[in-house]
């Protein structure tokens, strides 16, 4: 089985759940307490994906980047060599969707052919305020899909990462 590895960044404002999504995907675990990330945390998970003529083993190098604006300046240097990104927003904070455009611009400057998937996280919470029509429109503008995820329950987390993985192997 052919093996490939790809660098994938998790992008989004602080406290939208980027670290929790990675933790759920890689370790199938969840920590309810918020802990801000500074800099970058790299994790690795291998998934097997179907391709036209069989299967491929894709090692995803997941770059969990700090979302706080203090790290904006150094973010661009971390994006180098990335093949794709998961754009994460928080269903309870509408402004986190608006913030994603800037991350897309940053990514495209460094990696013009990068693939994206949008994750609307924390859908387990009751006070959803994000207008889904706006999320759909944003995902459509990137020609990609949007997933309603919960790092807490695990809803759609695997699907989100695997969807991006399929885009990456199809793009090879």
């Amino acid at each position: 089985m052919p093996r490939i590895s790809k660098k994938v960044c998790l992008l989004g404002d602080f406290a939208v759940g980027k670290t929790s999504l990675v933790r759920r995907f890689v370790y199938n675990a969840f920590e309810d307490k918020y802990l801000a990330t500074i800099g970058v945390k790299v994790s690795r998970k291998t998934v097997v994906l179907p391709v036209r003529d069989g299967l491929v083993e894709l090692a995803l190098l997941l770059w969990d980047l700090a979302g706080s604006e203090e790290f904006s300046a150094m973010r661009a240097s971390y994006l180098r060599g990335a093949a794709g990104a998961i754009l994460v927003c928080d269903v309870t904070r509408p402004d986190t969707l608006a913030g994603l455009t800037a991350y897309v611009d940053d990514m495209r400057r460094v990696a013009p052919n990068a693939h994206f998937v949008v994750a609307v996280n924390k859908i387990d919470l009751p006070d959803a305020r994000l207008p889904y029509a706006e999320v759909d429109a944003f995902a459509a503008s990137l020609h990609t899909s949007c997933y309603l995820t919960s790092a807490k329950t695990g809803d759609q987390v695997e699907e989100t990462f695997r969807h991006l993985g399929r885009l990456l192997v199809a793009g090879d």
Binding site: T37, I38, G39, V40, K41, V42, S77, Y78
Partner: peptide, 18 residues
Amino acid sequence: QLELPWINREMGDAHTIY
């Protein structure tokens, strides 16, 4: 030179080194 500040590493005893 290339510099990558604040690389997080989770160690076995659940603490992070930078």
